[in-house]
Simulated scan of single mutants.
Amino acid sequence: MSDTRIIKKYPNRRLYDTAISSYITLADVKRLVLESVDFQVVDAKTREDITRSILLQIISEEEEEGEPIFSSQLLAQLIRAYGGNMQNMLTSYLEKSLELWADQQRVFQQRTREFMDHNPMNIMTQFAERNLALWRQMSGLDGTRDEENSGFEDPPASSRGPGRHRRDEDSEGPQG
Rank of each mutant, 00 (worst) to 15 (best):
E148I: 13
D168H: 10
S97T: 08
G143S: 12
D103S: 14
I58R: 00
S158G: 05
Q104M: 09
L75A: 06
S21W: 04
Y82A: 06
H165A: 05
L74Y: 06
M1L: 13
V33S: 04
F39S: 02
F70L: 07
S2Q: 13
Y10H: 15
D117E: 14
A133H: 05
F152L: 11
Q110M: 13
D168Q: 09
H118N: 14
Q104P: 03
M124K: 15
A27T: 10
L75F: 02
G151R: 11
R145N: 05
D38G: 01
F70V: 05
P174E: 12
L78H: 00
V37P: 01
D49C: 08
S150E: 03
Q104L: 07
L94S: 08
F115V: 15
S150V: 01
Y16A: 02
G151D: 03
P68R: 15
L75Y: 01
K8L: 12
Y16Q: 02
K96E: 11
V29L: 14
E48C: 09
D38A: 14
Q126N: 08
Q87I: 01
R52K: 10
Q104T: 10
Y10Q: 08
L132N: 15
D168G: 04
I123T: 14
G66W: 00
Q77P: 00
E147D: 07
K8P: 03
V41L: 12
S60G: 05
P162Q: 00
N88V: 09
R166F: 11
K9R: 13
E169T: 11
F115N: 14
D3P: 06
L55A: 09
G143R: 03
Y10D: 12
R106M: 04
I69R: 02
E67V: 08
M124W: 13
Y93P: 01
I79E: 04
V37H: 10
S36W: 03
M116D: 10
A128H: 10
P174L: 09
I123K: 15
L74P: 00
L98Y: 15
P68W: 03
A81K: 01
L55N: 04
R13H: 12
P156G: 06
L90M: 13
I69F: 08
Q77D: 02
A44Q: 06
G84Y: 01
Q77K: 02
F70T: 03
F127N: 10
G163L: 04
Q77T: 01
W135I: 12
L132A: 15
V29A: 13
Q175Y: 08
Q175T: 11
D38N: 09
V37D: 09
